[in-house]
Amino acid sequence: MALNSTVVLTLILLTLMFGAGLTSASWGFTVGRQALKGITQPDFRPGNNAGGTKGSSNPREAVPIMNEKDILKAVKARMEGRDVDKGTAKGNSDADKATAKSAQAKKPVKNENAKTKFPVNSRDGGVTLEVSSIRERGSSLLLDVSMKNEGSQSVRFLYSFLNVTDDQGRALSASAEDLPGELPPNGEVYYGTVSIPTALLDNAKQLSLTLTDYPNQKLQLQISGILVPK
């Protein structure tokens, strides 16, 4: 009885596949073995002080095992040393605080309620500008001022040139009242006021006044350190 050609072809294909599988397995085993050649499992046996295979060309260093008592002694010594450091640091901190308090006690205390000793004045070229007092009226701070000319000729002033600043360097809006536009050379004293809105004096502690003549601007009348009343 003749074999069917399909069966014969199937058997041939199965034989080829089986042979190919064996060949692939053999080749893979060989490659893997070559790749793992020279790699050994670490030896962790306690009795092996070298930590590796006897006779190995690269023996591992032995790991020293400390006695439990020695470990406890080392920990105790470290803790005591830390406590001593903390105590020393605390002592130093207390000493620093004491020194700071002593220095602060010796430092002169500024009198916030100090007042300007009036009158204060400035003189240049025979002309004198004087502030005799400072007071509040309504929403304004008033400076009572006076001027006199003991020179040889009249001096003109434009009071829009009056410069008022505070201790923070801010220029303040101010207006002068009752002061003459031209100051004759007769030595007579002329009185007036300089008004500053209190709304502009936020955190201001001192005031300064600067005035020059017009139009020559040769005179420099300047008064500073006027304390703002609180």
Rank of each mutant, 00 (worst) to 15 (best):
S93F: 12
V109N: 03
L3N: 00
P229Y: 05
M79S: 14
T165I: 15
T198V: 15
L72R: 11
S122R: 03
N113V: 05
G32T: 08
K106N: 10
G181S: 12
V75P: 00
V189D: 03
L14K: 04
E61T: 04
D178E: 14
A204H: 01
E136I: 06
G138H: 04
K37E: 12
P59S: 06
I223Q: 02
K69E: 15
F44I: 12
N111G: 08
L11D: 10
G91P: 01
L183Q: 03
K107R: 15
L221R: 09
T10A: 12
Q41H: 06
T210M: 11
D166M: 11
G91F: 01
D124F: 02
S139I: 11
P229R: 07
P180Y: 03
G225A: 08
L11K: 07
P64M: 05
N216M: 07
V145W: 01
L183K: 03
D96G: 04
L221H: 09
I12R: 09
K69A: 15
G52K: 06
G125Y: 05
F157H: 02
L179S: 02
K97R: 13
L16D: 04
P108D: 13
G32W: 05
A62P: 10
T212D: 06
Q206P: 00
G181H: 07
K54N: 14
V120Y: 00
N113H: 09
Q217L: 01
D178K: 15
Q153G: 12
V194T: 04
S5I: 08
T212Y: 02
E177Q: 11
E68Y: 09
A50F: 11
S195D: 04
Q168R: 14
T53A: 14
G151D: 05
L3W: 08
I39D: 03
K110E: 13
T165C: 07
E177F: 08
I134D: 00
M66D: 13
F157Q: 00
D43I: 04
L201Q: 01
R33H: 10
V189C: 02
L183N: 04
P229F: 05
A176C: 08
Q217D: 05
T30A: 15
N92H: 03
R78K: 14
K107L: 15
V63T: 15
G151T: 02
L211A: 07
L211D: 03
L179N: 02
T212P: 00
N113Y: 12
V155W: 09
K90G: 04
D85E: 10
Q104I: 04
L158I: 05
T15H: 02
S139W: 06
L22M: 14
D167M: 03
T116L: 07
D178S: 15
V8Q: 10
Q104M: 11
S160K: 09
W27N: 00
V120E: 01
